[in-house]
Simulated assay, not measured.
Amino acid sequence: MFTIGDFASLGRVSVRMLRHYDSIGLLRPAAVDPHTGYRFYRADQLRRLNRVIALKELGLTLAQVQAIIDDAVDVAELRGMLRLRRAQLEAQVAADTARLAGIEARLRMIETEGRMTSQDVVLKEIPPVRVAELTGVAPSYQTRDIGPVIQPLYPQLFQRLAAADVAPSGPGLAYYQPADGDGEAVVVHAGVTVDADPARAADFAIVDLPAVPAAATIVHQGSMDEVEASMQVLAGWIEENGWRAAGHAREVYLEYCQDEPEKGVTELQIPVVRA
């Protein structure tokens, strides 16, 4: 099972949101430690979470969402509801575009449930890597919060690398860490592999990421707006094979297509240890 923090990261929602869903009975944790009160979730609960988010984005109240989900709305009905809402959103102001993209991504992920397989998950050792990076802070793990923070960091990073005469030696990568304090904020690390001496860093950082003895990995094809589906496959594989998440997940951009994100190829890496 996964801690509430790991489950929030995998589902791209906030911990606060999961606590609220627990309090109203919409999404209960699979287990609660009687001594610490810590919540734990199963990988298969991501399916219910996906439906909750999709229906909530339709503008339904949480009470309505619970009633619909408990009546087991099928994929075809849910697709029809989402498409109707899509037509309404397209007529609204440009600020709603991000929300529409989120609905589309959740819909595609729900439609692929049952057809995706964990056969493509590879357990492997990740060697240490030196990266040049810039960081930013996002309000939460939600895709619509991460995207606006991480996207401008890469152009800035490459401009600064060029000015410092530091050439990338490998692919770009990203990883995320909880910000200090008890809030939902996330530190976003946008980096690229380099061979440079850390002393050459000026207005960027050069850091050494340690080796990972064991990581569950999968190659995600397409836009990162739709990464939740691949994360769900990884979560299921980790739980089914007796592992648990044990560190910060990484995204390695094997093929990065800024103008055509649907052509992107990204390896997702989650450090694991035996449960």
Rank of each mutant, 00 (worst) to 15 (best):
residue 71 D to L: 08
residue 84 L to G: 15
residue 63 A to G: 13
residue 39 R to N: 13
residue 105 A to K: 08
residue 115 R to T: 13
residue 69 I to R: 14
residue 91 A to L: 14
residue 124 K to E: 14
residue 53 I to M: 15
residue 112 T to A: 15
residue 71 D to S: 13
residue 70 D to E: 07
residue 113 E to G: 08
residue 39 R to I: 01
residue 85 R to M: 02
residue 86 R to W: 03
residue 62 L to K: 02
residue 63 A to Y: 03
residue 112 T to P: 05
residue 39 R to S: 01
residue 101 A to H: 12
residue 56 K to A: 10
residue 123 L to Y: 08
residue 59 G to V: 02
residue 33 D to M: 03
residue 108 R to I: 02
residue 114 G to Y: 05
residue 52 V to W: 01
residue 96 D to H: 14
residue 65 V to N: 00
residue 56 K to S: 15
residue 79 R to I: 13
residue 114 G to H: 04
residue 55 L to H: 01
residue 102 G to W: 09
residue 105 A to R: 01
residue 95 A to R: 10
residue 30 A to E: 08
residue 44 D to H: 04
residue 120 D to E: 13
residue 67 A to D: 06
residue 101 A to V: 12
residue 38 Y to E: 03
residue 62 L to V: 11
residue 76 A to V: 15
residue 103 I to N: 14
residue 65 V to G: 10
residue 69 I to G: 11
residue 64 Q to T: 00
residue 69 I to N: 08
residue 73 V to A: 12
residue 70 D to C: 06
residue 68 I to F: 02
residue 43 A to M: 01
residue 53 I to L: 09
residue 108 R to D: 09
residue 51 R to Y: 07
residue 46 L to P: 06
residue 66 Q to T: 03
residue 90 E to K: 00
residue 95 A to D: 14
residue 54 A to I: 03
residue 96 D to K: 15
residue 102 G to S: 14
residue 41 Y to I: 01
residue 97 T to G: 05
residue 67 A to G: 12
residue 68 I to D: 01
residue 58 L to C: 14
residue 34 P to H: 03
residue 73 V to W: 04
residue 116 M to P: 11
residue 119 Q to C: 08
residue 101 A to P: 08
residue 58 L to F: 07
residue 93 V to W: 07
residue 86 R to C: 01
